[in-house]
């Protein structure tokens, strides 16, 4: 009898949300191990999606549709397992910095991270150092990710890093930054742990930093 994993994985890749839900339910009903459903079905499919996006064979909306399908399956399986057994690649607090309302880039990064298995806490736009600090205290993330579109607002990234230092939290969390005016040089200058030029690279960067 099929354990449904292959079929779940295929339907995650093609972004068939309803079919993924149906198959996940069937897999649960057939008595499959919930952690295996996640790892060998849902996440396996999503990792194929990640690789295809990177090589230019899949586009952003398709990736997001796959991610939605995966999440729908996850939501069905999660209640059946202990929270510490739920696979998560890491936790990322993400936001656009103070004085800046531009959020499409930040949202893209957030969605791509989620589709790669990260848990994200989105603090929204116009997020000053205090807001990031509060989120770090509350959620204890592995990484905070800051975005800015303007040369004037990117200065706020440094303020956040300084505040984390003052609060003695800088070595508890990794800091990554991105946005049109950001470069590796700027990241080095303000003491960030990394810079990524786009959403796909941001995911790779998180993987590298948490490896």
């Amino acid at each position: 009898m099929s354990n449904y994993y292959e079929e779940i994985s295929q339907n995650v890749i093609t972004g068939q949300l309803d079919r993924v839900k149906q198959l996940t339910q069937q897999a649960i009903d057939a008595g499959n191990d919930p952690v295996e459903i996640i790892n060998q079905g849902l996440i396996l499919g999503m990792s194929v999606v990640g690789a295809r996006f990177k090589s230019g064979q899949m586009f952003v909306p398709e990736v997001l549709m796959s991610a939605r399908s995966m999440t729908a399956g996850m939501d069905m399986v999660k209640p059946l397992i202990l929270s510490e057994d739920i696979p998560s690649a890491g936790k990322v607090v993400i936001g656009t910095v103070k004085g800046d309302l531009h959020d499409i880039g930040k949202n893209l990064v957030s969605m791509m991270l989620e589709s790669a298995g990260y848990t994200t806490i989105n603090v929204g736009v116009d997020a000053g150092p205090e807001k990031f600090l509060q989120a770090v205290k509350e959620h204890k993330p592995n990484i905070i990710a800051m975005s800015a579109l303007l040369t004037t607002t990117m200065l706020s990234m440094k303020d956040t890093i300084e505040l984390l230092k003052e609060e003695g939290l800088r070595d508890k969390v990794l800091v990554i930054i991105g946005g049109a005016p950001i470069s590796q040089d700027f990241a080095d200058e303000i003491g960030a742990d990394g810079f990524a030029p786009d959403a796909g690279s941001a995911t790779d960067l998180c993987k590298k930093l948490l490896a």
Binding site: F59, V60, G105
Partner: peptide, 13 residues
């Protein structure tokens, strides 16, 4: 009236 109207390239964004 301005406007830079274009697409997001769905591969590179």
């Amino acid at each position: 009236m301005g406007g830079v109207f274009t697409i997001m390239d769905m591969s590179s964004t």
